[in-house]
Simulated scan of single mutants.
Amino acid sequence: MQNNNITENFLDLAIDRKMYSTKSNLKFHLKYIFDDVELANKKVLDVGGGTGLLSFYAAVKGASKVVCLEPESDGSSSGMINKFNAFKTELSPTLPVELSPVTLQSYTPQVKDEEFDVVVMHSSINHLDEEACINFRKDTKSYNTYKKIMTDVYNKMSKGGSLIVADASCKNFYNAIGIKSIFAPTIEWHKHQEPSTWIAMLQEIGFKNPQVAWRSPNTFGKVGKVFMGNSFVSYLTSSCFKFKMEK
């Protein structure tokens, strides 16, 4: 009962702080991201987690430790550290969640003896090294840069751990015909990769059992997931996907 109460408090606070549009949409989104991933008693690393939406959710669902990496928060004008701490204070100061204002590449060498059971990269995998991501498929050096980053992630995960990656594919109808997407007007398509491209590289490292899901609009709920949660409709809209792999 206590876990249910804090989960509801988290949802209400997230909406009150304008971290998401509506409570029902947020629930649907969280289900989409963490579907079939156990969080209770797990150590979670949230890469590029911003003000901690996914980090706090993992914590209220029983994670034993959550680290949110958000390098832009270190001295940034957005005040993410303050927002993160204020959210934690209001929700529950004792939650096992912390923000570390460093990059993934800086963080992994600092935790030599740490292992994470769940690693989440929501709209962040392409930002780990944007230049390398842009040249990923045509330049061996860029490819190896990403392979090294993700190999370090693999080595910091427990056996059987889950890697969750959510991003936009570079393949999109509006981009193909040279006009701005009405569904995702801010996406810079050339800075992204297809899920199959990421998965192929991750399989080389040792990750296995890829499961890909294409995002449908939250407002349409389960019905939208059935009819719109596929690669074709996604190509015509936002091209957003999520995949999960295991160590």
Rank of each mutant, 00 (worst) to 15 (best):
Phe34Tyr: 15
Asp35Lys: 14
Asp36Tyr: 07
Val37Met: 10
Val37Cys: 13
Val37Arg: 12
Glu38Tyr: 00
Leu39Cys: 09
Leu39His: 08
Leu39Thr: 11
Leu39Ile: 04
Ala40Tyr: 09
Asn41Ile: 08
Lys42Glu: 00
Lys42Leu: 02
Lys42Val: 02
Lys43Val: 13
Lys43Asn: 13
Lys43His: 14
Val44Glu: 00
Val44Met: 06
Val44Cys: 09
Val44His: 03
Val44Gly: 03
Leu45Arg: 14
Leu45Gln: 14
Leu45Ile: 15
Asp46Thr: 09
Asp46Asn: 08
Gly49Lys: 08
Gly49Gln: 08
Gly49Trp: 12
Gly49Cys: 08
Gly50Gln: 09
Thr51Phe: 09
Thr51Ile: 15
Thr51Asp: 08
Gly52Ala: 03
Gly52Ile: 12
Gly52Gln: 04
Gly52His: 10
Leu53Ser: 04
Leu53Gly: 04
Ser55Trp: 04
Ser55Gly: 13
Ser55Ile: 11
Phe56Ile: 10
Phe56Cys: 05
Tyr57Leu: 02
Tyr57Gln: 01
Tyr57Ile: 03
Ala58Tyr: 05
Ala58Pro: 06
Ala58Arg: 06
Ala58Asn: 08
Ala59Arg: 01
Val60Phe: 08
Lys61Arg: 13
Gly62Met: 04
Gly62Leu: 00
Ala63Gln: 01
Ala63Met: 01
Ala63Trp: 00
Ser64Gly: 04
Ser64Pro: 06
Ser64Glu: 09
